[in-house]
Design a protein around this nucleic acid. Structure first.
Lengths: 238, 238
DNA sequence: CAGTGGTCTAGACCACTCC
DNA sequence: GAGTGGTCTAGACCACTGG
């Protein structure tokens, strides 16, 4: 365990257990560094983690304060650090996948540009219905370069593509860029998500990339509006 | 200008102007530190900024790489660092506000808990329709403790509450926690946003807090589905 | 092995706030 | 002036990668 992570976890525990008052600042960085026997830079890095999570806020010249709304609403640890993929997000649920479409094709201009490839590079085109605890949840429309994500089988599609990429292909997923919007449901949504024609859809458009910077996935996840919301933490610069 | 910000901006410029190849790593941290006449820690901090924006990715033992999908799709600088408030987001547009409701009331349990106050603390309850370039855009339902955000007038509501908080009250807005979801439109939405009964709504539920950690706003922003999408960058830890 | 990024140190000075 | 966080330094050692 890295030192700053251990310290960060301990401070977080103290905040959650209300061992620090929310009306006055927590101890200053130098005192905390002394207590945890580390340098001030390391202490700062430990606190940075909690600032990023929206749990702490610093006031220059004053001190470091607890964000009251965070502790009350337990909203921490969402946003930029979370894992990708339903399989990771819902570890305790039973997830099934129904394969609606599975083909290899040449991408159109739009798909190609998001994947940083040409329209001559073949891609997998996969449409999967993800079913959580027996209920239809999200319809995923995914494009992946077939030379990059090689060896896909229906068996993998029934489980987790991300896990295959990480564990079998040995690739490292670095992050993603997303757009979240509301839209009307189309016939495909209604058919597979079992929703009414006036039920809205929460759509997440996403480009995911590997730790080489290469995009490996361009996808549209269409969620039932009653099964999903997206959370985010914004930290403004002073 | 802080040194690391200046360096960060210069590196970003080089990436955008394609002065670095996307197929090989950018120069290593030590070389860059030498070039910019700074310590390696400062160089690292400058690169951290771009990693956070999803523009760069580091591979330990290999080097630092450009995220291809970021440069292609110009998706940078969205996510956790953006300013709050429509007035900031759409600086070049003409924004009008129609006040639908403006009252002082005692909050219910839910509102009170999100604002970390009791149900005995009076709050402003404001419903505003925001109109951008003549088109209805978003219906905002906002609660703010009236003792904290004092002296609100209809004139301010017609312009920007956030600007008033920052410039007139001298308070500093630190950040916010958000939930984004799709929902069906209700009669109020249809009336003010001029949308059809089967038009979906993109709702952003938000708790914003000051740099003291005190929540000052609990709000629901109901956006026309064809006028708004939310963007986010996820950076996963290795 | 050399080269990369990741962590950590022990200090320094600066910017800001309050008294 | 005293106390806070913000930046920056010049190193050190570690973890991981490739040849």
């Amino acid at each position: 365990m890295k030192k700053y992570e251990a310290i960060s976890a301990e401070i977080k525990r103290r905040i959650m257990e209300k061992e620090y008052s929310t009306d006055s600042p927590i101890p200053d960085e130098i005192s905390l560094a002394k207590e945890f026997a580390c340098s001030r830079m390391t202490m700062k890095k430990a606190l940075d983690v909690l600032v990023m999570e929206g749990l702490l806020y610093r006031k220059r010249g004053h001190g470091t304060f607890i964000v009251k709304s965070a502790i009350d609403n337990k909203l921490v640890n969402v946003g930029t650090g979370e894992s990708l993929g339903l399989t990771n997000l819902l570890k305790n649920k039973k997830i099934e996948s129904k394969i609606v479409l599975y083909e290899v094709m040449f991408p159109n201009e739009e798909v190609a540009s998001h994947l940083s490839i040409t329209t001559k590079t073949p891609v997998y085109h996969i449409v999967r219905l993800r079913i959580v605890d027996g209920e239809p949840y999200v319809l995923e429309d995914t494009y992946m370069p077939s030379d990059l994500i090689s060896g896909l089988t229906e068996e993998i599609l029934h489980f987790s593509i991300y896990q295959y990429i990480k564990e079998k292909l040995g690739l490292t997923i670095a992050g993603s860029h997303r757009k979240i919007r509301a839209c009307k449901s189309n016939e495909l949504d209604q058919q597979y998500l079992n929703c009414a024609s006036d039920d809205p859809i929460l759509e997440v458009e996403q480009v995911s990339y590997l730790n080489t910077g290469t995009p490996f996935e361009y996808s549209f996840s269409r969620h039932r509006y009653d099964k999903f919301f997206f959370t985010a933490v914004s930290i403004l610069k002073p």
